[in-house]
């Protein structure tokens, strides 16, 4: 009988335990794990189990971090310069890709004949690994900023374009039927039904594209520039500064994390109606 067992001291104790558990947030466990691993790493280097030169310990990385902020690497090019350069390139390339891909994708997706006509081109362009275009892009545009931004935009463009096309085509017909029976015109249906119904999938594509932007940026910063986090890592490699490389990686992770969170926040603000379930399904 549930009522009698519920009131037993043992059950009450378990209930209290369950209620008590959320007091420790989930991230604490993750943080503890990381701290333990960092401690082990430091300890292992101290006892010369692993090479401090190849695997600079956390204490060394902390000093490097400080040095990069103050003096920079190469000397004079401080971290904020690298940060700004990388962030700007990503924002430019990503924004250009988004601004062109979304309207075009919506248009193509809503025009079946056009969609059939351009599908082979899109499939091909999407399959071309963006970085394999690097030599060609350098030949066309030189090794300047334009090439870097172009390659980021290229990588993102096809992903967002495809997601926008699929999004429009995936809009449930019942929404369109409902809108028609409510007397909406074709234009009203496009703007007020197709567009909002497509947005969750377009956002999913934008998230994937952001990952692509990071893949491309690091590689394109490895040529022809000393500014940017990719350049920082590359320069560090030339001087066998594994510590600088690692700190550079951490910087990249910080930008990536921040941008991904910003995009997620934007999605929550713009699409408050999207359920968590749908987020998982996407």
């Amino acid at each position: 009988m549930p009522s009698s067992s519920d009131s037993s001291p043992r059950r009450a104790w378990i209930r209290r335990l369950r209620r008590a558990r959320p007091a420790v947030p989930d991230w604490v466990y993750g943080l503890l794990t990381v701290l333990v691993l960092l401690g082990l790493w430091e300890y292992a280097v101290d006892h010369a189990w692993i090479n401090a030169y190849r695997f600079p310990p956390p204490s060394k990385l902390a000093r490097t971090f400080e040095a990069l902020l103050e003096r920079g690497f190469p000397r004079g090019v401080t971290t904020d310069v690298h940060f700004k350069a990388t962030l700007w390139r990503i924002l430019k390339g990503y924004t250009v890709a988004t601004v062109f891909a979304i309207p075009l994708g919506l248009f193509v997706g809503a025009t079946p004949l056009l969609e059939r006509a351009v599908t082979p081109i899109i499939t091909f362009a999407r399959s071309v690994a963006t970085l394999s275009l690097l030599p060609l892009a350098v030949a066309w545009f030189g090794v300047g900023e334009f090439t870097r931004v172009f390659l980021i935009a290229y990588g993102c463009f096809w992903i967002i374009l495809t997601s926008a096309i699929n999004a429009v085509q995936g809009v449930s017909k019942v929404y369109v039927f409902a809108a028609q029976s409510l007397g909406a015109s074709r234009r009203q249906i496009f703007v007020q039904v197709m567009l909002p119904a497509s947005l969750p999938r377009i956002f999913a594509g934008m998230r994937v594209a952001l990952g692509m932007a990071f893949l491309v940026i690091i590689a394109v910063e490895m040529i022809g520039t000393i500014e940017g986090l990719g350049a920082l890592i590359m320069e560090a490699r030339n001087f066998y500064r594994t510590d600088v490389t690692m700190v550079g990686m951490i910087f990249i992770a910080i930008i990536g994390f921040t941008l991904a969170k910003t995009l997620a926040w934007l999605e929550r603000v713009l699409l408050p109606w999207v359920t968590d379930l749908e987020e998982v399904q996407r």
């Binding site: 449930s172 019942v174 929404y175 039927f177 409902a178 029976s181 409510l182 007397g183 039904v193 909002p196 119904a197 947005l199 699409l271 109606w273 999207v274 359920t275």
Partner: peptide, 15 residues
Amino acid sequence: PDRGMVFQQGALFPW
């Protein structure tokens, strides 16, 4: 609009 339609569940505009 002279014929109102009610579908099975899931036809409301979720946005």
